[in-house]
Simulated assay, not measured.
Amino acid sequence: MPTAAKIKQPLLAAALLGALAAPLLAQAEVRYSVQVITDMGANMGNTALAANGDIAGAAASDTVPYYQNSIFFYTAATRHVATFSASGWHLSSGEMNDNGVLVGTMRNQAGTTRGFVYDHGAVNYLADGTTANDINNAGVIAGSAGNKAATFANGTATLLSNSSGSAGAINNSGTVAGSIGDNGFVSQNGSINIISAGAVNHPMPFALSSDGALAGADRIDDGNGEPSAWMKVNGQLTYIPGLHKFSGGYALNEALGINALHQVVGYGLTADYTSHGFLYENGQTFDLNSLVDPSLKLEIFSAGGIDDRGQIVATACESLFSYSCSVIKLTPLSAVPEPETYALFMAGLGAVGLAARRRRQRAVVSTLA
Rank of each mutant, 00 (worst) to 15 (best):
residue 150 A to D: 03
residue 41 G to Q: 06
residue 275 S to G: 03
residue 41 G to C: 06
residue 135 I to A: 00
residue 19 A to T: 15
residue 330 L to W: 07
residue 150 A to C: 09
residue 132 A to S: 14
residue 79 R to K: 14
residue 74 Y to K: 02
residue 198 G to M: 10
residue 104 G to P: 08
residue 329 K to Y: 02
residue 2 P to Q: 10
residue 294 P to R: 11
residue 84 F to M: 10
residue 292 V to P: 00
residue 85 S to C: 01
residue 118 Y to S: 03
residue 137 N to H: 07
residue 5 A to N: 13
residue 178 G to P: 01
residue 80 H to E: 12
residue 77 A to E: 11
residue 54 D to S: 09
residue 50 A to W: 06
residue 123 V to E: 03
residue 268 G to T: 09
residue 3 T to L: 07
residue 356 A to W: 00
residue 200 V to R: 06
residue 99 N to Q: 15
residue 261 L to G: 05
residue 187 S to I: 15
residue 5 A to W: 09
residue 183 N to E: 12
residue 334 S to K: 15
residue 115 G to H: 01
residue 321 F to L: 13
residue 183 N to A: 15
residue 12 L to A: 09
residue 284 Q to A: 14
residue 161 S to A: 13
residue 192 I to M: 08
residue 258 I to M: 03
residue 4 A to S: 09
residue 214 L to M: 05
residue 24 L to T: 14
residue 37 I to Q: 01
residue 167 A to C: 12
residue 227 P to M: 04
residue 322 S to L: 10
residue 115 G to C: 05
residue 317 C to D: 04
residue 49 L to F: 05
residue 45 G to S: 04
residue 62 D to Y: 11
residue 152 F to D: 00
residue 57 G to R: 06
residue 128 D to R: 05
residue 165 G to H: 02
residue 99 N to D: 12
residue 253 N to D: 13
residue 215 A to M: 07
residue 277 G to K: 02
residue 83 T to V: 11
residue 135 I to Q: 00
residue 283 G to F: 07
residue 332 P to W: 10
residue 60 A to I: 11
residue 115 G to L: 06
residue 96 M to E: 01
residue 272 D to I: 15
residue 71 I to A: 00
residue 101 V to R: 15
residue 300 I to T: 04
residue 357 R to Q: 13
residue 18 G to W: 01
residue 10 P to A: 13
residue 108 N to K: 12
residue 219 R to H: 05
residue 203 P to D: 01
residue 148 K to W: 02
residue 47 T to G: 00
residue 217 A to H: 07
residue 214 L to Q: 03
residue 271 A to W: 07
residue 218 D to K: 02
residue 60 A to D: 11
residue 23 P to W: 05
residue 160 L to T: 04
residue 141 I to V: 13
residue 285 T to F: 04
residue 330 L to R: 08
residue 52 N to G: 09
